[in-house]
Nucleic acid binder design. Structure first.
Lengths: 339, 339
DNA sequence: CTGAAAGCGCTTACAG
DNA sequence: CTGAAAGCGCTTACAG
């Protein structure tokens, strides 16, 4: 495999000049540059990343930490990140913690510190104070998507207010018996968004002088299956049923819709459902929801990182305030049935 | 940040000994090893991957090339790969081509050759002869999941026969008017599985002396939305309708089910649907399908790679023959309606 | 079992 | 604008 010396020899210049011509750092005459490029092409020369990184201290490699890639939000954010990174000529090192504490520890103590990464993007990862300190001490740019992390630039939507608005939408339709389906305890390690959404829900009820009924505060694991099971058992209870449910994600809302269908309960006639995300399938399900553009959150995270690395200017700072969201009323919400 | 020399000094040994003690290569006395480990820990020393890779020629970094991470099969395979790689102490470099030819080119000409990777796993990626040659010339282990690639170890399910069996299941129930929903041309670049599945479908019809009707050979882009649209227009046609559809993926089958529901067509009473995959949601939808364990395909791809890298022995070779699949009959299939 | 030394393949002041 | 040389932080024959 051709090395920089081979190219230098073929082009009749020094290795230093080859490096400068190919990287764009430093001045090289156009004629020389052309000769070098030609020689490199002929030899099929590709720079050794390891050698280049070692010598320069920069890796052109960004770490991305996600709790899982099998949920809509994460895979969509990841696609946005991946596309933007490829365009910028950066590598993407993926850390899927699988929600396992053990894997998170190794990610932080080892991988992130191995100097192979120029920067890190974390997605809805809740960090301990200690981890924040570790990240800070490494002195590499970090951008977080989803969960707020002190001292770190964060892209996030307004979980509290969007959920409150969704809840108010139901209240305005006349609902007074409203359930909430959030994430489970177990997942709160990584997905800290649950509490903000639940807070927004409770706030809206409170504003309307409606009581929060503990037995209607449900938790699943952000999956459609989990939600299906929870809503199924909610609907099968003999006692008084809620007439609507606020789900903390669209994927859980799908589970709620399927459960209602299997129970022969008419949506929205007998039961209203709202979600949160703007999942690709929300339109097919006719789901009323708040949409957030996950893909572009990923893209903007990369842009912010590149800015922090001094690669480019930012037209606007995505970590400034809340990321835009949009309320979309569709056909899973209606006034509650007459008693 | 502490380097190897700092550790050497603190432990009172040479850098060479530190390297041997920490990496496990070469003999080191237990006492020395303990001292080195202690010193490393106290200093918070972490080896520089770049330097280590450059010196040793090995990166502990595996490249994974996927067409997208936003479809069930890919994200599930990726999770399997990611977990197994973390356990083995390897990094995962993700290349999401986004189905774009442009990105694939840069992946192959640049990224894979930059010597930063020890091996590559490709997922349902159709490679040109030229690309196969490129990969071979780099002389790094490659394992493919999904699509068959000449000269490369491949983990794959029997697309032809599973689809044929699914089709025969419908035929045995009495169906004679059966449609097929495969992938679109556009996607065949990356997803070469479409043709094998369609071939299996046509073979089964042929065996039963049933005619393949071109107007019932449909193609979507492997998404639920795409399938919804296709099936919707199929069902809205005034002329003779099929009584069943074979979908080349579960996600497309979901679209078919939702379309039927929105048309007030009873499944399975008036219309039968079969999928292919064993998607997490297939049980909720009651979908009859062939399940394949995508996660463990990812895990086994990693194990095969590690074997090729000389890291471990394999109990069984996943690239040997077809990966196991399982037929699961559920409630979306039944005899066709009486005419 | 351990150390001194060469070398991995680049990048980047420094000097011209 | 270009080259000679040092250096990035490790690993690994080689010698003992």
């Amino acid at each position: 495999m051709a090395g920089i010396k081979d190219v230098a020899q073929r082009a009749g210049v020094s290795a230093a000049t080859v490096s400068r011509a190919l990287s764009g750092n430093g001045k090289v005459s156009p004629a020389t540059r052309a000769r070098v490029q030609q020689a490199a092409e002929e030899l099929g020369y590709v720079v050794s990343f390891n050698a280049s990184s070692l010598a320069s201290g920069r890796s052109r490699n960004i770490g991305v930490v996600v709790p899982t890639v099998s949920r809509w939000f994460f895979s969509t954010v990841l696609e946005g990140i991946a596309g933007e990174l490829i365009s910028a000529g950066y590598d993407l090192t993926l850390y899927d913690t699988g929600g396992q504490e053990q894997h998170r520890v190794s990610v932080f103590s080892d991988l992130l510190l191995r100097k192979r990464l120029d920067a890190v993007i974390t997605v809805t990862l809740k960090l301990s104070d200690n981890e924040v300190r570790q990240l800070a001490s490494v002195d590499k740019p970090v951008v977080a998507i989803g969960g707020f992390i002190p001292e770190i630039a964060t892209i996030r939507v307004d979980d509290f207010n969007t959920t409150a608005l969704l809840t108010e939408h139901l209240i305005e339709l006349g609902h007074t018996r409203i359930a909430f389906l959030g994430g489970s305890e177990e997942f709160d390690v990584d997905f800290k968004l649950t509490t903000a959404r639940q807070d927004g829900f409770e706030y809206a009820l409170d504003q309307a002088n409606l009581e929060v009924r503990p037995e209607w505060l449900l938790a699943a694991n952000f999956t459609t299956e989990g939600a299906y099971r929870k809503i199924r058992s909610l609907l099968s209870m003999p006692r008084e049923r809620p007439t609507a449910v606020v789900c903390a994600s669209d994927e859980m809302a799908f589970g709620a819709l399927l459960a209602a269908r299997d129970f022969g309960i008419d949506v929205p006639g007998d039961f209203s459902v709202v979600g949160m995300d703007g999942h690709d399938l929300s339109e097919l399900f006719g789901l009323t929801t708040f949409s957030q553009d996950a893909r572009s959150q990923g893209i903007w995270a990369v842009r912010k990182i590149l800015e922090l690395l001094g690669e480019r200017e930012l037209e606007r700072d995505p970590t400034d305030g809340f990321y835009p969201t949009e309320f979309i009323a569709r056909s899973t919400t209606a006034p509650p049935p007459r008693p």
